[in-house]
Protein backbone atom coordinates (compact mmCIF):
# COMPACT_ATOMS: atom_id res chain seq x y z
CA UNK A 1 0.00 0.00 0.00
CA UNK A 2 0.95 3.61 -0.54
CA UNK A 3 -0.42 5.30 2.58
CA UNK A 4 -0.93 3.64 5.93
CA UNK A 5 -2.82 5.60 8.61
CA UNK A 6 -2.93 4.09 12.06
CA UNK A 7 -5.09 5.48 14.88
CA UNK A 8 -4.85 8.98 13.52
CA UNK A 9 -6.41 11.67 15.68
CA UNK A 10 -6.47 15.37 15.00
CA UNK A 11 -7.70 17.71 17.63
CA UNK A 12 -8.13 21.42 16.93
CA UNK A 13 -8.06 23.77 19.88
CA UNK A 14 -10.20 26.80 19.21
CA UNK A 15 -9.43 30.26 20.44
CA UNK A 16 -11.92 30.03 23.26
CA UNK A 17 -10.28 26.82 24.39
CA UNK A 18 -12.93 24.53 22.96
CA UNK A 19 -11.55 21.33 21.47
CA UNK A 20 -12.77 19.76 18.28
CA UNK A 21 -11.87 16.20 17.41
CA UNK A 22 -11.69 16.56 13.64
CA UNK A 23 -10.23 13.09 13.10
CA UNK A 24 -11.03 10.43 15.60
CA UNK A 25 -8.96 7.28 15.51
CA UNK A 26 -8.70 6.80 11.76
CA UNK A 27 -7.03 3.64 10.55
CA UNK A 28 -6.87 3.34 6.82
CA UNK A 29 -4.70 1.97 3.99
CA UNK A 30 -4.67 3.56 0.59
CA UNK A 31 -3.34 1.44 -2.22
CA UNK A 32 -1.19 2.50 -5.13
CA UNK A 33 -3.53 3.28 -8.06
CA UNK A 34 -6.62 3.54 -5.90
CA UNK A 35 -9.27 6.22 -6.54
CA UNK A 36 -10.67 6.75 -3.07
CA UNK A 37 -13.81 8.83 -2.73
CA UNK A 38 -14.42 10.41 0.69
CA UNK A 39 -17.88 11.62 1.53
CA UNK A 40 -19.53 12.83 4.70
CA UNK A 41 -21.44 15.77 6.08
CA UNK A 42 -19.87 19.20 6.41
CA UNK A 43 -17.52 19.38 9.39
CA UNK A 44 -17.00 15.63 9.49
CA UNK A 45 -13.22 15.96 8.98
CA UNK A 46 -12.87 15.27 5.25
CA UNK A 47 -10.55 18.21 4.54
CA UNK A 48 -8.57 17.55 7.68
CA UNK A 49 -8.01 13.99 6.50
CA UNK A 50 -6.81 15.24 3.14
CA UNK A 51 -4.37 17.72 4.66
CA UNK A 52 -3.04 15.08 6.99
CA UNK A 53 -2.43 12.67 4.13
CA UNK A 54 -0.89 15.45 2.04
CA UNK A 55 1.73 16.44 4.61
CA UNK A 56 0.17 19.80 5.41
CA UNK A 57 -1.00 18.90 8.86
CA UNK A 58 0.52 16.69 11.53
CA UNK A 59 -1.89 14.49 13.44
CA UNK A 60 -2.23 14.99 17.20
CA UNK A 61 -1.53 11.29 17.64
CA UNK A 62 -1.24 8.17 15.56
CA UNK A 63 1.03 7.51 12.59
CA UNK A 64 0.84 8.11 8.86
CA UNK A 65 3.31 6.47 6.55
CA UNK A 66 3.88 7.17 2.91
CA UNK A 67 5.93 4.13 2.00
CA UNK A 68 8.63 4.29 4.64
CA UNK A 69 8.35 8.04 5.25
CA UNK A 70 6.63 8.86 8.53
CA UNK A 71 4.56 11.94 7.79
CA UNK A 72 3.48 12.28 11.41
CA UNK A 73 6.93 13.17 12.68
CA UNK A 74 8.76 14.54 9.64
CA UNK A 75 10.05 18.11 9.89
CA UNK A 76 8.89 20.96 7.70
CA UNK A 77 11.65 20.63 5.12
CA UNK A 78 10.88 16.92 4.73
CA UNK A 79 7.15 17.47 4.46
CA UNK A 80 7.56 20.32 1.98
CA UNK A 81 9.75 18.11 -0.10
CA UNK A 82 7.21 15.32 0.11
CA UNK A 83 4.38 17.60 -1.04
CA UNK A 84 6.42 18.90 -3.90
CA UNK A 85 7.52 15.53 -5.24
CA UNK A 86 4.52 13.32 -4.55
CA UNK A 87 1.36 15.34 -4.09
CA UNK A 88 -0.78 17.38 -6.42
CA UNK A 89 -3.65 19.32 -4.86
CA UNK A 90 -6.93 20.23 -6.54
CA UNK A 91 -9.16 22.36 -4.32
CA UNK A 92 -12.75 23.51 -4.42
CA UNK A 93 -11.71 27.17 -4.69
CA UNK A 94 -8.97 26.44 -7.23
CA UNK A 95 -6.35 28.33 -5.22
CA UNK A 96 -4.60 29.93 -8.14
CA UNK A 97 -2.22 32.81 -7.47
CA UNK A 98 -4.22 35.84 -8.66
CA UNK A 99 -1.38 37.91 -10.07
CA UNK A 100 0.14 35.12 -12.13
CA UNK A 101 -1.06 33.97 -15.53
CA UNK A 102 -2.25 30.41 -16.09
CA UNK A 103 1.16 29.56 -17.46
CA UNK A 104 2.97 31.14 -14.52
CA UNK A 105 0.73 29.43 -12.00
CA UNK A 106 1.89 26.10 -13.36
CA UNK A 107 5.48 27.31 -13.60
CA UNK A 108 5.57 28.26 -9.92
CA UNK A 109 4.92 24.65 -9.05
CA UNK A 110 7.54 23.43 -11.55
CA UNK A 111 10.06 25.91 -10.16
CA UNK A 112 10.60 23.92 -7.02
CA UNK A 113 12.15 21.04 -8.93
CA UNK A 114 13.23 22.72 -12.17
CA UNK A 115 15.33 25.87 -11.89
CA UNK A 116 15.55 26.43 -15.66
CA UNK A 117 12.80 28.87 -16.68
CA UNK A 118 12.75 27.65 -20.26
CA UNK A 119 12.04 24.08 -19.18
CA UNK A 120 9.45 25.28 -16.68
CA UNK A 121 7.66 27.04 -19.50
CA UNK A 122 7.81 24.03 -21.81
CA UNK A 123 6.36 21.83 -19.13
CA UNK A 124 3.67 24.37 -18.30
CA UNK A 125 2.67 24.71 -21.94
CA UNK A 126 2.46 20.94 -22.35
CA UNK A 127 0.28 20.57 -19.27
CA UNK A 128 -2.04 23.42 -20.23
CA UNK A 129 -2.33 21.85 -23.65
CA UNK A 130 -3.28 18.61 -22.00
CA UNK A 131 -6.15 20.23 -20.09
CA UNK A 132 -7.20 22.09 -23.22
CA UNK A 133 -6.17 25.59 -22.16
CA UNK A 134 -3.21 26.28 -24.38
CA UNK A 135 -4.88 29.35 -25.89
CA UNK A 136 -5.60 30.75 -22.43
CA UNK A 137 -2.14 30.41 -21.00
CA UNK A 138 -1.48 34.15 -20.79
CA UNK A 139 -4.73 34.84 -19.01
CA UNK A 140 -4.96 35.66 -15.34
CA UNK A 141 -7.30 33.60 -13.15
CA UNK A 142 -9.90 36.39 -13.05
CA UNK A 143 -10.13 36.23 -16.83
CA UNK A 144 -10.95 32.53 -16.76
CA UNK A 145 -14.22 30.78 -16.03
CA UNK A 146 -14.54 28.57 -12.98
CA UNK A 147 -14.17 25.43 -15.05
CA UNK A 148 -11.09 26.81 -16.77
CA UNK A 149 -9.55 27.80 -13.45
CA UNK A 150 -10.02 24.30 -12.15
CA UNK A 151 -8.33 22.92 -15.26
CA UNK A 152 -5.35 25.21 -14.63
CA UNK A 153 -5.29 23.85 -11.08
CA UNK A 154 -5.21 20.30 -12.44
CA UNK A 155 -2.36 21.22 -14.78
CA UNK A 156 -0.54 22.73 -11.82
CA UNK A 157 -1.18 19.64 -9.69
CA UNK A 158 0.62 17.61 -12.36
CA UNK A 159 3.60 19.98 -12.60
CA UNK A 160 5.99 17.83 -10.60
CA UNK A 161 4.79 14.44 -11.88
CA UNK A 162 3.17 13.49 -8.57
CA UNK A 163 2.10 9.99 -7.69
CA UNK A 164 -0.94 11.18 -5.73
CA UNK A 165 -3.69 13.71 -6.45
CA UNK A 166 -5.59 15.02 -3.45
CA UNK A 167 -8.83 16.67 -4.52
CA UNK A 168 -11.00 18.54 -2.01
CA UNK A 169 -14.48 18.99 -3.46
CA UNK A 170 -12.98 19.79 -6.88
CA UNK A 171 -16.42 20.19 -8.44
CA UNK A 172 -18.04 22.06 -5.55
CA UNK A 173 -18.02 25.38 -7.39
CA UNK A 174 -18.81 24.09 -10.85
CA UNK A 175 -21.92 23.57 -12.96
CA UNK A 176 -22.86 19.91 -13.38
CA UNK A 177 -21.57 19.68 -16.94
CA UNK A 178 -18.25 21.31 -16.02
CA UNK A 179 -18.08 19.14 -12.94
CA UNK A 180 -18.37 16.10 -15.11
CA UNK A 181 -15.57 17.36 -17.28
CA UNK A 182 -13.24 17.74 -14.27
CA UNK A 183 -14.18 14.35 -12.86
CA UNK A 184 -13.51 12.77 -16.20
CA UNK A 185 -10.06 14.32 -16.25
CA UNK A 186 -9.34 12.86 -12.81
CA UNK A 187 -10.71 9.52 -13.95
CA UNK A 188 -8.28 9.53 -16.87
CA UNK A 189 -5.37 10.39 -14.60
CA UNK A 190 -6.24 7.42 -12.46
CA UNK A 191 -6.96 5.03 -15.31
CA UNK A 192 -4.29 5.88 -17.85
CA UNK A 193 -1.59 7.51 -15.79
CA UNK A 194 -1.98 5.23 -12.80
CA UNK A 195 -2.11 8.12 -10.30
CA UNK A 196 -3.50 7.44 -6.86
CA UNK A 197 -6.40 9.78 -6.18
CA UNK A 198 -8.13 10.71 -2.95
CA UNK A 199 -11.17 12.87 -3.63
CA UNK A 200 -13.45 14.51 -1.10
CA UNK A 201 -16.89 15.20 -2.47
CA UNK A 202 -20.43 16.11 -1.69
CA UNK A 203 -21.72 15.33 -5.12
CA UNK A 204 -23.99 12.28 -5.20
CA UNK A 205 -22.82 11.37 -8.69
CA UNK A 206 -19.13 11.88 -7.93
CA UNK A 207 -19.09 8.53 -6.13
CA UNK A 208 -19.36 6.74 -9.41
CA UNK A 209 -15.92 7.94 -10.43
CA UNK A 210 -14.00 6.17 -7.69
CA UNK A 211 -12.75 2.66 -7.13
CA UNK A 212 -13.47 2.79 -3.42
CA UNK A 213 -15.38 4.90 -0.98
CA UNK A 214 -15.30 5.84 2.69
CA UNK A 215 -17.73 7.94 4.60
CA UNK A 216 -16.70 10.16 7.51
CA UNK A 217 -18.92 11.03 10.40
CA UNK A 218 -17.68 13.19 13.30
CA UNK A 219 -14.11 12.42 12.34
CA UNK A 220 -14.52 8.68 12.21
CA UNK A 221 -14.83 6.31 9.27
CA UNK A 222 -18.28 4.94 9.03
CA UNK A 223 -17.46 2.64 6.18
CA UNK A 224 -13.95 1.27 5.73
CA UNK A 225 -12.56 0.57 2.30
CA UNK A 226 -11.72 -2.95 3.39
CA UNK A 227 -15.31 -3.55 4.28
CA UNK A 228 -16.63 -2.18 1.05
CA UNK A 229 -14.82 -1.46 -2.17
CA UNK A 230 -17.21 0.93 -3.73
CA UNK A 231 -18.97 -0.12 -6.94
CA UNK A 232 -22.13 0.92 -8.63
CA UNK A 233 -24.05 -2.12 -7.48
CA UNK A 234 -22.71 -2.21 -3.95
CA UNK A 235 -24.53 0.41 -1.89
CA UNK A 236 -22.74 2.52 0.67
CA UNK A 237 -23.16 0.93 4.03
CA UNK A 238 -23.33 3.09 7.15
CA UNK A 239 -21.55 1.58 10.11
CA UNK A 240 -21.91 2.67 13.70
Amino acid sequence: MLFRLQNVRKEYIHQRGARVMALDNITLDIEQGEFLVVTGPSGSGKSTLLFTIGGLLRPSSGTIHFGTLGLHDADDARLSDFRRTHIGYVMQNFFLVPYLTAEENVMVACALSEPEVKLQREKSVALLDRVGLLDRRHHHPRELSAGQQQRVAIARALANDPSVILADEPTGNLDPSLANDILTQLRVLNDTDGLTIVMVTHSPTANTFGTSHIRLHDGAISLTPDAVRWTEDLPVREVG
Binding site: A77, R84, I87, M91, F95, V108
Partner: peptide, 16 residues
Protein backbone atom coordinates in the same frame (compact mmCIF):
# COMPACT_ATOMS: atom_id res chain seq x y z
CA UNK B 1 -2.30 34.79 3.38
CA UNK B 2 -4.22 32.88 0.77
CA UNK B 3 -1.42 32.77 -1.76
CA UNK B 4 1.12 31.92 0.93
CA UNK B 5 -1.15 29.00 1.79
CA UNK B 6 -1.18 28.03 -1.88
CA UNK B 7 2.59 28.13 -2.11
CA UNK B 8 2.88 26.06 1.06
CA UNK B 9 0.51 23.55 -0.52
CA UNK B 10 2.72 23.37 -3.61
CA UNK B 11 5.72 22.45 -1.51
CA UNK B 12 7.20 25.77 -0.36
CA UNK B 13 8.88 25.24 2.99
CA UNK B 14 8.73 27.66 5.92
CA UNK B 15 12.21 28.79 4.99
CA UNK B 16 11.28 29.51 1.40
Amino acid sequence: KREIGILRMLGFSHKR
